[in-house]
């Protein structure tokens, strides 16, 4: 079966907004991250494991509001004893083997999220338009759950130098969120890649 990406009908390649009045390197790049595996890992209250002892592919689990990343694996802190794992490979079996079902819940939620990646000088300004979170406090490999124009999102700062930020939302809110983000980008000019 072929996977249809959440933003398949809306994300378009090309330049939009006020791109003619800005230099090329200042245009915000919008990209959809697709064909990625997403797993939710929840530790049960009765688990005897310490969070500091947890790891997958020798990558330890992050602390509050942080991300631990290695190659094509990213682990995001979602809440106490709750993480999201992003991987370009299917690691469901590996997770089930490493995390006993008596102490952890591993759920494949790859098809239930949409991911928009923004890159450019004014990315934080775009986020400030719709989110009450103090975006300037977001450093590299920080993440947080917050809202954008009423939509619950997860913000993942992938690269601080490049101003590269991923915005993750429920799949059903993906198109609506994309509209909001694209609207926010218009004044800076954006390029769908």
């Amino acid at each position: 079966m072929k996977n249809i990406s959440p933003l398949n009908n809306i994300h378009q390649i090309g330049k939009y907004g006020d791109f003619q009045n800005v230099k090329d390197h200042q245009i915000i790049k919008i990209k959809e991250i697709k064909n990625i595996f997403i797993y939710q890992l929840v530790k049960f209250k009765n688990s005897s494991k310490k969070n500091s002892d947890l790891s997958i592919q020798s990558l330890s689990f992050p602390n509050i509001l942080e991300v631990n990343a290695k190659n094509d694996l990213r682990i995001l802190w979602m809440g106490p004893n709750n993480w999201l794992i992003f991987s370009s490979k299917n690691i469901y079996e590996e997770l089930n083997k490493n995390f006993s079902m008596n102490e952890f819940a591993v759920t494949d939620i790859s098809h239930s999220r949409s991911i928009i990646e923004l890159e450019g000088l004014n990315v934080k300004e775009v986020l400030k338009k719709g989110s009450p979170f103090d975006i300037e406090s977001l450093k590299q490999n920080n993440c947080t759950n917050t809202i954008y124009n009423g939509i619950t999102i997860t913000v993942d700062c992938v690269d601080q130098d490049l101003n590269k930020i991923r915005i993750i939302s429920l799949r059903s809110f993906g198109e609506s969120l994309y509209h909001s983000i694209a609207d926010g980008c218009l004044e800076y000019g954006y390029e769908g890649t």
Binding site: G79, P80, P132, F133, N145, I147
Partner: peptide, 10 residues
């Protein structure tokens, strides 16, 4: 107590 200061809308 887990995430710090946030806006009421959250």
């Amino acid at each position: 107590p887990y995430c710090g200061i946030r806006a009421q809308t959250e």
